[in-house]
Nucleic acid binder design. Structure first.
Lengths: 147, 147
DNA sequence: TGACATGTTCGACATATATAGAATACTATC
DNA sequence: GATAGTATTCTATATATGTCGAACATGTCA
């Protein structure tokens, strides 16, 4: 038995886990409706798709397969109720946003916030309105950390 | 001959073009050193990799294959000098940052800036210092758009 | 109890991405 | 002009992702 342990690998799964576009779409529904079945997600997605682009939306099995894979990735978990699978999120919306933001920051701005802000102001055409809003936010946050 | 033309598709290529992590790494080098050969990029990448993580870096053919694909995607272009291929970027650093930022914004914040800022302040631990910096930036930008 | 609706599991295929060895071409030089 | 170095092109593998149909299981209700 001692030998067999050495090479035991049991899926390192330490691989970079990124959330793809479709996965984000699914997560949004799950956060909104969890715990929910794959069918619910599929229908809701189809509804939204038709609403926004007129196109028909993906097949149930497509969504189900993707959601099963998301369980392996650690984004979702399954809770069985009789023969029904209910999906719940394993990662909070805040956490997902955090990851997505940090990934972008690392890629495009070397991980630093200030250069990003600089960029926003110089190139993203922050409007006067947006800038004012922003200033308010910042001031409020300063006040909060004041006390 | 007339028949063969009908099915001519010539690569729609209207597909979503995202820049992957490896591609970002390559682009950073190209922006820095363009026009430059694939070998140059490969060596520089290997140098950086060894510097930061001790690991050996990817093979020349890996980088070359990836760069060729990036030409198809419209990120790079080739300029031939005798039998040598020199790569140049087709997309500016600013543009790439823009895309990456917008992609994140769309995914995680429904495309809106203010919620993102809110999030930063609430969850990303913007420090008092950073907030002040930010306020300065914003004010400067407001002044600029004033005149 | 048996047909129907709904859910789950399997397997399949296309394309994208990451990776790299092998075969081939070109150039300068001894 | 044969040869050693580079660079380029070709080919191949593994894994990830997007997409689905078909087969199978189960609960419901007339």
């Amino acid at each position: 038995m001692s030998e067999s342990l050495e090479k035991q690998k049991l899926k390192p799964n330490k691989r970079k886990v990124e959330m793809t576009e479709v996965e984000w779409e699914i997560m949004r529904i799950v956060w909104d409706k969890e715990p929910c079945a794959a069918g619910t997600v599929q229908e809701e997605l189809a509804r939204l798709k038709k609403l926004h682009s007129g196109s028909p939306g993906k097949a149930y099995s497509t969504i189900k397969t993707t959601m099963d894979r998301m369980v392996e990735k650690g984004f979702l978990q399954i809770e069985k109720v009789r023969n029904l699978q209910l999906f719940k999120s394993c990662i909070s919306e805040v956490d997902a946003k955090h990851r997505e933001f940090r990934k972008m920051l690392k890629r495009a701005f070397d991980g630093a916030l200030t250069p990003m802000m600089q960029f926003l102001i110089e190139h993203e055409g922050i409007s006067k309105d947006e800038a004012s809003q922003l200033r308010e936010l910042v001031q409020r946050s300063e006040e909060k950390s004041e006390k």
